[in-house]
């Protein structure tokens, strides 16, 4: 795979935010591939690891803002899992292929675009550093 970024998007927040970004013509890197999930809490460590195994250059998990998760604890659990996944990657010395969680609300397309751009920047920087 050619530097794809896989973004798991919660259908209550990030997915509509991404839709809105499109509607407003806000651009983000074309390398982003969105997988729709019912809640960020559905995304497990294995999904993030497999994404990297299949060649993704980064994984985003996008969930609702703190305290606004439709399923109460889904976003908190997702954050914990992202942290755990990050630990697993550091354990095996993989850096430069970040797994990152962002929180946003469905009416925050700018935040979605910012997350996409930020992760692209991180990847680029770590690639240049090597």
């Amino acid at each position: 795979m050619n530097g794809r970024i896989i973004a798991f998007c919660c259908e209550h927040s990030a997915y509509p935010a991404a839709d809105l970004a499109g509607k407003l013509g806000l651009h983000y890197p074309e390398t982003l591939r969105i997988i729709r999930v019912p809640c960020a809490g559905r995304v497990d460590v294995i999904h993030m690891l497999r994404a990297l195994e299949k060649g993704a250059s980064a994984v985003l998990v996008l969930g609702c803002e703190d305290g606004a998760c439709h399923h109460i604890t889904g976003n908190i659990r997702a954050r914990e899992r992202v942290k755990h996944c990050d630990m697993l990657l550091r354990e095996i010395g993989i850096d430069g292929r970040p797994v990152v969680m962002f929180n946003l609300s469905p009416n925050a397309p700018h935040k979605f675009v910012k997350a996409a751009n930020e992760i692209t920047k991180i990847i680029k920087e770590s690639r240049e550093a090597r």
């Binding site: 497990d44 690891l49 195994e53 697993l88 095996i92 993989i94």
Partner: peptide, 17 residues
């Protein structure tokens, strides 16, 4: 089964790196 999947994946990633 879940931990098996995670460990196997982690191992593959480590070795492929």
């Amino acid at each position: 089964e879940k931990e098996v999947g995670i460990l196997a994946s982690q191992l593959r990633l480590a070795r492929s790196a």
